[in-house]
């Protein structure tokens, strides 16, 4: 999924189908690297997505996200 990201850099994965588009992750991200998609997911939400760069792996988005499995944070 994140082919462009080097394995040495932290990144997040957002499961678009599990996201309810509440935007809380966007507000807490210190780097501003999450945005809302124009597209709708299967539950008719505009899901958040990772811009694909500059994630520090701080995991604040994970704790701000109310969904158990929508966000995964990887910090190599």
């Amino acid at each position: 999924m994140n082919d462009s990201v080097q394995a040495t850099a932290p990144f997040i994965e957002i499961d678009a189908e599990l996201c309810k588009g509440c935007k809380l992750c966007i507000g807490v991200c210190p780097k501003g690297v999450i945005d809302i998609s124009e597209k709708l997911n299967g539950s008719s939400y505009h899901p958040a997505y990772y811009l694909g760069r500059d994630c520090t792996g701080c995991a604040l988005c994970f704790y701000a996200c109310p969904e158990p499995a929508a966000i995964k944070v990887v910090k190599p």
Binding site: L18, K20, K23, S43, P66, E67, P68, A69
Partner: peptide, 19 residues
């Protein structure tokens, strides 16, 4: 939907459950 919660978008219960 068996992987998401029944809570509304942005509801705080999900955060608390997670912690």
């Amino acid at each position: 939907h068996k992987e998401t919660t029944h809570y509304c978008p942005g509801c705080g219960h999900g955060n608390i459950h997670k912690m």
